[in-house]
Amino acid sequence: MEKNDQLWNTIQHVWNESANDVTLELQIDELIQELKSKVSPWEKKWVKSDLAQIKEAIHSDKERLSSREKRWLAQDLQWIKKLFEKLFSKRNKPQG
């Protein structure tokens, strides 16, 4: 048992040291800028497709919805659109 514990400690030590063969240099501020520029278009596409799905759902259920529900949904959509523009147009503005 003691031998196993000793071996286990060695395993833990080897594991802890195992990433020491490389130096991970991360320029964190540059990385965040890069992530923003690379990932945003994907998010944009994703939010856009969500919006399109909502629109489609509303359209297909048009007959079933009361005029009040339609008005609420239209307001919600406007709000989402505004939020989307605020988030993404601000994020993608050129720096400096």
Binding site: L24, I28, I32
Partner: peptide, 18 residues
């Protein structure tokens, strides 16, 4: 959150990738 995570745990994440 990303800064904190990468500062403190980048080696761990790299070990998983390895």
């Amino acid at each position: 959150q990303l800064k904190r995570l990468l500062n403190d745990h980048k080696q761990s994440l790299y070990r998983i990738c390895k």
